[in-house]
Simulated scan of single mutants.
Amino acid sequence: MDAGSPQTGASAPFRGSTMKTAALIAASALALAIAFGAGAKNSDAARRNTEVSMVVRGHARLNPDGDIQSIAIEREQKVPAPVVALIRDSVTQWRIEPTQQDGEATTGPLKLTARVVGRMQDDRNVALKLKSVHFGEDRTDVAPKPGTMRKPSYPAALAGTNAAGTAYVLARLNANGEVDEAMVEQVNLNVVASEKRMQEIRDAFAASAVGAIKKWKFIVSEQYRAADASPVTVRIPVGYETPQLRLPGYGQWEAYLPGPRARAPWLSQDARSADADVVADGDFQVVGKEPRLLSARSGE
C-alpha cells in the first residue's frame, strides 16, 4: 500500500469529554445549515452527514529496518489528548520502506500529516477514526518561488454569502517550475445548501484556486531533476472564509462536508488513490514521491 495516504481504519471511542465534543458536532451541523440559510430538510441532512475533523502535523522517526519508533506531534499541547493517542498508538505499529543515501538506510524524521475524524455514535459518545496519513520528506529541493504566490481571491460571485471551504489543487510543473497544468481534486465545504447551490460554490472556489495557482512558480533544484526527470506534481490546499465564518486554527475541530473526488490522469494509480485532503492550509505536498508503506510490524 502506498504510504502517501494509507487508509488506516484505526479508530477509538472518544470518551471523557465526550459531551463537549458530541455537542460540538451537533451544533456544527446546525451551524452549517444556518450559515447559508438552508431549510429544515437540509439541516437534518447536515446533522446526519457532517463529520468533525482536524489535520495534525508532526514527524516520524524510523529505525534502519523501517519500523516507526516514535512520533513527535507538532504543537502537541494544542491537539486534544485522545487525538494524539490515536495517532501515536496506530502509526507506531507500521513499517515504512527506508530511503537510501550513499547505500545506507536513512532514519531521519519523515514529515507526517494525519487527518482524524469524529462521528456521533449517540447523544453522548463520539467515535474517532484515523482516516488517513501522509508521509513525506521535509523537502528543500522543491519550494515555492518567492513573490509569485498570489493568494487566490474570494470569488466575486459569492460576495455577501457565508460560503466557506477548502479547495485541494494539483499542479504539474514544467522544467522551469511553472505550472503547466492544474486541476482541483476536491472541495470540502463548511456550509450546507441545496445540492445545486453547493456545486455552484464548489465550482466558484475551484475556478478561483486554479486561476491563481496557474500563475505560481516553483524552484526545483538541479539535484532533484538529476535524480528524477519526470514532471513534479504538488498538492496545494486553498482555504476560503468570510468574516462571519472563519476556518478553524491548528488543533481545532472543523465541521465540513467532504466534496466529490476527481482524479488527475497523469498520476499513478497509487497517487490517485491517496486522499486529497491530508494537507493543512498554508502547506503543500510533492505527490507521488512518498515512501512506501510495507506492513504492520511483524509479530503484532
Results as ranks from 00 to 15, higher is better:
Gly239Asn: 05
Asn42Ala: 14
Ala226Thr: 01
Asp203Gly: 12
Ser153Cys: 07
Ala163Ile: 02
Asp277Gln: 03
Trp266Lys: 06
Gly9Glu: 02
Ser11Leu: 12
Phe36Tyr: 09
Thr92Tyr: 05
Thr50Asp: 09
Arg263Gln: 13
Val184Asp: 05
Tyr256Trp: 06
Met183Asn: 10
Ile201Lys: 00
Phe218His: 01
Arg61Gly: 02
Thr242His: 04
Gly4Arg: 02
Leu24Arg: 12
Ala296Gly: 15
Ile68Asp: 00
Val117Met: 08
Arg95Trp: 03
Val191Met: 10
Gln199Pro: 09
Asp281Met: 13
Lys129Ile: 06
Arg139Val: 14
Trp253Ala: 06
His59Ile: 10
Thr166Val: 13
Thr233Cys: 13
Leu294Lys: 03
Asp122Phe: 04
Thr148Pro: 02
Gly165Thr: 05
Arg88Ala: 15
Leu130Tyr: 02
Lys196Ser: 13
Phe135Trp: 06
Asp228Arg: 08
Asp67Cys: 07
Ile71Trp: 05
Gly299Tyr: 01
Ser132Asn: 11
Arg95Ser: 11
Thr18Cys: 14
Val287Glu: 04
Glu178Cys: 11
Phe284Asp: 03
Glu76Thr: 14
Asp283Cys: 09
Glu181Cys: 13
Gly160Ala: 03
Val169Asp: 02
Glu195Gln: 10
Ala40Asp: 09
Ala46Ser: 15
Leu189Pro: 04
Val91Ala: 08
Gly288Cys: 01
Gly288Glu: 00
Asp102Glu: 15
Gln186Glu: 08
Arg172Trp: 07
Leu247Met: 06
Pro146His: 05
Ala167Thr: 06
Ala31Leu: 08
Lys78Val: 15
Asp281Ala: 14
Pro152Ser: 11
Ala35Met: 08
Lys20Glu: 15
Met54Lys: 06
Pro258His: 00
Lys129Arg: 13
Gly16Glu: 08
Pro231Gln: 08
Gly118Ser: 06
Pro146Cys: 11
Pro258Lys: 01
Val84Cys: 10
Ala227Thr: 00
Ala114Gln: 08
Gln7Ala: 09
Ala255Cys: 03
Ala3Thr: 01
Pro258Tyr: 00
Ala274Arg: 09
Phe14Asp: 12
Arg225Glu: 07
Ala159Ile: 04
Ser194Thr: 05
Gly118Asp: 03
Gly37Ile: 04
Val210Glu: 00
Ser43Gly: 12
Ala159Gly: 01
Asp44Asn: 11
Ala27Asp: 10
Gly16Arg: 03
Ala45Val: 05
Gly177His: 03
Phe284Cys: 06
Phe14Cys: 14
Pro13Val: 13
Ala45Ser: 10
Thr18His: 12
Glu185Arg: 14
Ala193Ser: 13
Ile71Asp: 08
Gly108Asn: 13
Val142Trp: 07
Met54Arg: 02
Ala60Val: 09
Glu290Gln: 12
Val191Gln: 09
Val220Asp: 05
Asp275Ala: 15
Pro80Asp: 05
Leu245Thr: 12
Gly4Gln: 04
Val286Asp: 03
Asp203Ser: 12
Asn49Ser: 14
Ser230Arg: 14
Val238Trp: 03
Val192His: 10
Pro82Ser: 10
Trp266Pro: 01
Ala22Cys: 04
Ala85Trp: 04
Gly16Ala: 12
Asn188Trp: 00
Asn188Phe: 00
Ser194Cys: 04
Arg197Ile: 12
Leu158Lys: 01
Ile73Val: 15
Leu257Thr: 11
Asp203Met: 09
Phe284Gln: 04
Pro80Trp: 00
Gly58Thr: 05
Val220Ser: 06
Pro265Gln: 02
Gln100Pro: 08
Val279Ile: 13
Leu128His: 01
Ala143Lys: 14
